[in-house]
Design a protein around this nucleic acid. Sequence first.
DNA 1: GATCGTAATGTAAGCGCTTTCATCAGATTC
DNA 2: GAATCTGATGAAAGCGCTTACATTACGATC
Lengths: 348, 348
Amino acid sequence: MSPRARPTLEDVARRSGVSTATVSRCLNLPDRVSKSTRDKVDAAVRELGYSPNFGARIMAARRTHTIGAVIPTMENAIFARGLQAFQEELAENGYTMLVASTSYSQQNEEEQIRALVARGAEGLLLIGHDRRASVLEFLATQKVPTLVAWTYDPEAALPSIGFDNFSAMRALMVEVLRRGHRKVAVLSGFTAENDRARLRLEGILDAIGDAGLDPTAVPLIRSDYSIDAGKDGLATLLDRDPELTAVVCGNDVLAVGAMIGARARGLRVPQDISITGFDDIELASVVDPALTTVHVPHREMGRRAAQILAAMLHDEQVPTHVKLTADLRLRDSLARPPRPLRRLTGGA
Amino acid sequence: MSPRARPTLEDVARRSGVSTATVSRCLNLPDRVSKSTRDKVDAAVRELGYSPNFGARIMAARRTHTIGAVIPTMENAIFARGLQAFQEELAENGYTMLVASTSYSQQNEEEQIRALVARGAEGLLLIGHDRRASVLEFLATQKVPTLVAWTYDPEAALPSIGFDNFSAMRALMVEVLRRGHRKVAVLSGFTAENDRARLRLEGILDAIGDAGLDPTAVPLIRSDYSIDAGKDGLATLLDRDPELTAVVCGNDVLAVGAMIGARARGLRVPQDISITGFDDIELASVVDPALTTVHVPHREMGRRAAQILAAMLHDEQVPTHVKLTADLRLRDSLARPPRPLRRLTGGA
DNA sequence: GATCGTAATGTAAGCGCTTTCATCAGATTC
DNA sequence: GAATCTGATGAAAGCGCTTACATTACGATC
């Protein structure tokens, strides 16, 4: 016996003595078929272990009920969370999700977008607004409804759902300053191809400027979003300026890294140095002291993104820019700066 | 102008004045085409914003270079990590990854497997060995090379790469007992459809039996793998038996939850109560005290899984069962049990 | 009993691509 | 200059499915 290939619709049709059209209907529109034939067909399907070829289906039906999501990384809990909710809501609406990740590279993102569209994604979820014009053109040419999440920008070309990274981070920075901190440093993510990181940084510097300090004088390190980078970053910052009383971080992962770095240096948080994050991932409330951060409603964002995308696919009118609120979570890692005294011991 | 649909190979052919065959060759076998026509075609592709229809490609070429991965959840860092490595290595070998998640349900898993195969997945990565025979039959009928990861079982029907959940957890339990703990409780994941959880639990009970204690008398709670479940679980366990000196958890997430629960009850870890985890996710070394746990080489597992799967697709001979080592990471959350004295204060 | 309506089924035309095979224009050889 | 080979290209046959349309069977209607 030759190595039997995957059974096709036709095999099923032959075996159950009906036409391929009828088999197809059994699978897709069961009510249009009489009970007796349906039973025959079902039996044949089972006996043959038949499963339809998706490629053929895409071509013939021109519908895939598939939506693609392109995220920077699966390793950050915020995307994992949001996507899980996105997928659940999508399933609710009869859609399947396809994920791809880019490692924060625009180049990769463009490839993944093309790959997903080629695979029949009828809609796309992207993160942030930073991407080359060629991608936008491609999306327009292909007429693929696309929604941007994790950022809010009323000016942007693509519809978006998200929060105002600038204002949220600015509010946190204002709070840091209100507590009396003046020697502040920043641990940021890479800002070149990442509007969320950039806006957060701008929010920080804006608040600093408004407080009458010089934003260009603020010690600043850009790195990838990892615990180690946070740890190393803190060490570098303290080497440059041991007088630091607060370090504001681009996200929680960096902040936790910074906390570990501080601990490694024998500094207590927040008595000796305050540290803040952004995102409010689970980790933030698990560490000790709990992290002061900005809470982002990742789950809700994912869920609503799915609803909006589904509506877009049904050609319904949808709000072009949805703003969610990201609010401060004041916890224990932020306190007043230590009295200057502490710092004198070494210097005197 | 009518709403122009997605351009096809034929549009490109027409525009560049060649046949569809030539365009196809330009895309797939560029060396077989003269420089001049290649340039014309490339130009047309760019102008039209052409991107090939994957479905059509699957059908015509019967190759997709796609591998599917079906995991329980993206929310657990261990899978996110492992998959990231899996994908990177897959890309290295010219394959694309498609992910689907099951929320730890066999029912969902079966659907996702079928969906991925229908989508043209040429190989599959699955987690754990627990699944219905019907799925295995399906896989056999469809002749889809399948590799199981995150568990090692030399007896299993499908080839696997992973570690010995039973022995690893058993070793940890032995260590707990060696430190003198006798009042031990267990916080396990659901074991019904999850062989990893089941094997870990068996490992624990086996060590307990060998130590001359009664395994059936061990307080045990099964729950989902979440911080909250860990927290609540610890509370319940302590309500049932306040004398507990150690809680062994099915994974790190549960363990961190238990640590929070302990703290909430005013107990110090490890002075008043010891807690252990499994997996060694980042979180484990970030919490204070750092978690004693079992280190699992997630990244390596993902990477090697990709290599093996690629070899399987090339019909190369591969080792059927690969065992990786998962070793103890003794950190601060495990110590000797407190002197009985502590417990008397309340009772006297 | 002829007429019509309806439900169930079949026929066959693609969907957009790859690939085999045939063709053809040049370059090479004798 | 004829014969041969080579590389580039085109024509056309599917890949496995869906669906518009045609056909058939059969009960209801007058």
